[in-house]
Simulated assay, not measured.
Amino acid sequence: MTPEILRDLLIKSAEALDWSVETVDEFTRPQFRGRAGGEREATLQHVFGLRLGSFPVLVAQVRLESEQMKEDLRNLHGQMVIARSYMRPDEVINAHILLCAIATVPLDDWRQVVDLTERDERVCRKIVWVPNRDALKDSYDAFRARTFLATPWLTAGTMVNAPLDHNQGLAQRILVKNGLSPMAAERWVELSKQNRDDPDSLVAELDFARTSE
């Protein structure tokens, strides 16, 4: 599986949300914006720059073997630092590297390797797609659901007249649970809502409400 496939799937997902989509070649340039010389030793292969809505993205491949992955990520971190010089100041915080994983040998611990990669948020957020050739759509959908392209509200069921404030009456219920009568608890809540400069008078009224039943 190639990062070109991931790139194309990401574009389709963004377009399905009616987001603007832009291919940004500048994100993969070997030198910083406005700086002559100082280029990277070699341009990275199979790396693509995109702008998906307000999210600037590098799409690339990463090898799952631990040492090779470290090398790939080191190079991609360097590329992202360069890419950020071409980003608008307000979008740098949204920068992502979205990775298509490849494995040259069978791996039993690839989940641990991917987890370590994704938890490392130095430079920017990174999310790894491990394609399943036998269930490509399902594996991509699971990947997309972990990214900024997820839209769970589009598939959530509609609930009519749902209670929006489960905290209403909470203080009163706790007071009753801890020994106050419902009437005293209601009075305590009313007293707590009043603005007053004399805390001693509040204490006296709270005590009176408790003992005057």
Rank of each mutant, 00 (worst) to 15 (best):
L116T: 11
L116C: 14
L116F: 13
T117N: 10
E118I: 03
R119W: 07
D120R: 03
D120I: 02
D120A: 04
E121Q: 13
R122K: 12
V123D: 05
V123Y: 03
V123H: 00
V123N: 01
V123F: 00
V123K: 01
R125C: 08
R125H: 07
R125N: 04
R125D: 04
K126W: 01
I127H: 11
V128P: 06
W129M: 02
N132F: 01
N132D: 12
D134H: 13
D134E: 13
D134A: 13
L136S: 06
K137P: 12
K137W: 09
D138R: 11
S139Q: 02
S139H: 01
Y140M: 06
Y140V: 08
Y140N: 07
D141T: 10
D141R: 06
D141M: 12
D141N: 11
A142G: 13
R144D: 08
R144L: 07
R144Y: 10
A145Q: 06
R146G: 08
T147L: 02
T147H: 03
F148W: 00
F148E: 02
L149H: 03
L149R: 01
A150R: 01
A150E: 06
P152M: 05
P152W: 03
W153D: 10
L154Y: 06
A156P: 15
A156M: 07
T158N: 10
V160P: 10
N161C: 08
N161G: 10
A162L: 11
L164I: 04
L164K: 13
H166Y: 15
H166L: 13
N167E: 15
Q168R: 14
Q168F: 11
L170C: 14
Q172D: 07
Q172C: 08
R173G: 06
R173H: 09
I174V: 11
I174C: 13
I174D: 04
I174P: 14
L175I: 01
L175N: 00
L175H: 06
K177E: 05
N178S: 15
N178G: 14
G179V: 04
L180P: 15
S181R: 08
S181C: 06
P182E: 03
M183W: 14
A185R: 01
A185T: 00
A185Q: 01
E186L: 11
W188L: 07
W188S: 14
L191M: 06
L191G: 11
S192H: 07
S192V: 01
K193E: 09
Q194A: 10
N195S: 14
